[in-house]
Amino acid sequence: MIKILAFAAFALAAGSNIHTSAQETSLNIADPIEACADADTREVVQRHFQKNTKATLAGASRKLALPELLVVTGLPPEQAIGTQMTPEILKDVWTSMDAWGEQASVRTVFTMGGEHVLEFPGYIPVRQADLDDGWLDIYADGGAGVHGHLWLNRVGSAHAIERANKNKQLFRSISFYAPEGHLIMGVYASVPGTPADPKAVEGFERTRALLASMPRLCER
């Protein structure tokens, strides 16, 4: 009997160690950063884009060794409007993107911590039934396109970004950032060199207006 109890105690301890081990190794979650670029960072970022008219946000992030979020909040306020996300606000923002129309053509972009760039053309992914399970499920093209799942509590902020290249062609994106400062995904309504879908551009303007009506992430 004592042996059985001792074994049970050992098994319990081992089980709890296994659990602890898994929790300790965990996923790569860093601490949240201060989301707003200070005056020096704003100057560095804006000078970088003045000198490098073809620079992308990811490229600037890499070159300047800054989290991409600080590059975005370092842009002049007329180029980027950001607001803090909560699960409910994120759902509202995506509902406004649903209204771009299921046939609105966009490019979704991922930068994977700033080292890689993955781009996908397609229709805008729209919200699926809200299961209230912590996820925002977004599918494109009636389910034939991308299936995406955003974990609502892990989205820090959303930004409407509109920048011109040297030929005055516009990048327009609604971009979502993690609390740690890296891009989760950018939904581009227009990219220089590719014809923009008017449905996406008009939708972008409406979503930008929605973000502009919310409290600003950074007051300057």
Partner: peptide, 14 residues
């Protein structure tokens, strides 16, 4: 193509 961001957000692109 499967993408995950931080192991939390996931996307599958055909």
């Amino acid at each position: 193509i499967i993408i995950t961001v931080d192991g939390w957000h996931a996307f599958a692109y055909p």
